[in-house]
Amino acid sequence: MLRRIPIAGLGLLLAVPALAHGAATEGDAASFDPFAGSIIVAAALAYGVGLRRAANGRRRLVPPLRAVSFMAGCAVFFAALASPLHSQADLYLAAHMVQHIVLVTVAPLLVLVGRPDLLILGVLPRRGRSSPARFARAALRSPTIAAAAHGIAIWAWHAPPLFDAALQNEALHALEHFSFVATALWFWAAVLAATRRASGRIEALIAVLATLIHGGILGALLAFSGRPLYPAYADEAALLGYAPLADQQLAGLIMWVPGGAFYLAVGLWIAFRLIGQETPPYSAAPSGKV
């Protein structure tokens, strides 16, 4: 009964990253963005209200640890979007990469582990009979399609012209972060939902593996490029006097290795679930030494 589409109800959170950039002005060193912050707080509040309401029932809908995870996820979103990391991201590609990695891995996963879908009302029709509605639901639940969408978002925005344009234009930058976070939430929600079903774990694992591989390849391309790919950062580098190529290499490596490690860990967790319950090993005789 509770197996609703886990993405539902996250619309509120999606607005956060998009607006984060809207409010931040260039060169704002403190970079505390009250607007982004307040939306995160609002999401957390909505979740808390839902938690209280659910606690009125007999069964506890969301265990406390999951609630903690949701709050931690909000905190990480907050830290990524409204902290010194954000202002550093305007200066260093590597810092920007850290911000992106956090936005698409740790933060959404922590939020989703809190099962906001159970608490915040769904934004999608629950029982649409029309074939487009069924198709949309199937697509939203499919780790493969979610992984493809997430992959396209990541690769498209790393094309230098788009990436640079986003750096110049705050609205585009907001759109960039929005598409990262939205597809990441979709991706992880579909993966988590698929992992809950025994029959969905293989697909979830393949989706995570594919993302691990293509993310690693993108990181490798950045790390191995013989020239700076993003002119905006090359300008920053000239201004601040650091080597733009080294910055780009570091950014690629961050995406490749620690980023990859995160997908690896999730992939192993899915594999662990896939193996299922372990039957005790066969033993011919009662235990004890001979």
Binding site: S283, A285, S287, G288, K289, V290
Partner: peptide, 8 residues
């Protein structure tokens, strides 16, 4: 050498 040590 010291097999059948299940539990060890």
């Amino acid at each position: 050498r010291r097999s059948r040590a299940e539990g060890a």
